[in-house]
């Protein structure tokens, strides 16, 4: 496989990325099981070619788009982003992708659209976790339209110069670096533009614990643990914790999206 030559980006952090081993062996992807190691063990069976994304709702050009057609006109960039899980661990990941706004502009967002809803593949035969109860599959997530249009928000198709590994959400996933990781939905098959706030999987499961916004915020605790600090995975056994940054360190780029909002209520 040819290495992907992705252009560097001004949005990349200077922080040293985690190793490919870290990034591909410590995943929450419940479609493949509950443990962090389950995705690495079971995602190999997922067939990601052919792949298409259905784009519908309040768009000018709805349709079922083949992944190749989606990717043809885009210039892939490398975005080295901080990644903060709601479980209070973090990594630094060199994603490869393009801005979600690129795609949304191409399909033409109609003026009334206020939200983007997204859906993960539902294929229990290759995603054994979907045969288990507990979660109402398929996994769904969503963003407000201005969040979706923010240049930090990307659709990622690779990491570390390689195609996206299955356990990380192949072949195409969302990355919203200022939000907790569960917002960054994996293996996307459907994107809908809508005027209503879409339902989202974790919010439905535990509304008290996981809000629609899920912005990284050291001042708003998860009911079961503090979000003030985080553990950097790969930092070593005795590295301790580091302070969590507001909006995961992307305050300059995104704080204006939430002006006047009570982030304690809209967690």
């Amino acid at each position: 496989l040819a290495k992907i030559n992705a252009a560097p980006s001004k949005y990349s952090t200077d922080a040293a990325p985690n190793t490919l081993k870290d990034i591909t062996n410590y995943n929450n992807f419940y479609e493949f099981g509950w443990d962090k190691t389950d995705p690495a063990a079971h995602a190999g069976q997922l067939v990601t070619d052919p792949w298409s994304i259905e784009i519908d709702g309040m768009v000018d050009k709805p349709g079922n788009y083949a992944l190749d057609d989606i990717l043809k006109p885009v210039t892939l960039e490398q975005r080295i982003y901080r990644f903060r899980c709601v479980e209070a661990w973090s990594m630094v990941v060199p994603w490869i992708g393009f801005e979600l706004a690129d795609l949304l502009n191409r399909v033409g967002v109609q003026p009334g659209a206020k939200y983007v809803a997204m859906q993960t593949l539902l294929r229990p035969s290759q995603m054994p976790g979907q045969k288990q109860g507990g979660i109402d599959w398929p996994y769904v997530e969503g963003l407000r339209i201005d969040e979706a249009m923010n240049p930090l928000t990307i659709l990622a198709t690779g990491l570390y110069d390689e195609e996206m590994p299955n356990q990380n959400g192949a072949p195409i996933r969302l990355i919203v670096p200022w939000k907790y990781g569960f917002k960054s939905i994996k293996s996307i098959v459907k994107i809908s533009l809508t005027d209503k706030m879409p339902r989202t999987t974790w919010n439905q499961l535990q509304p008290r614990e996981y809000g629609f916004y899920a912005n990284v915020n050291p001042k708003v605790d998860h009911p079961r643990w503090s979000q003030a600090t985080e553990r950097r995975v790969g930092a070593g056994l005795f590295a301790g914790r580091e302070p969590t940054l507001m909006f995961n360190g992307y305050e300059d780029e995104v704080a204006s999206l939430y002006t006047g909002m009570d982030l304690r209520k809209n967690y």
């Binding site: 081993k21 870290d22 062996n25 410590y26 962090k36 190691t37 661990w89 553990r231 995975v233 790969g234 056994l237």
Partner: peptide, 8 residues
Amino acid sequence: GVDPVKGI
């Protein structure tokens, strides 16, 4: 595992 702290 990748996260020895949680692993232990």
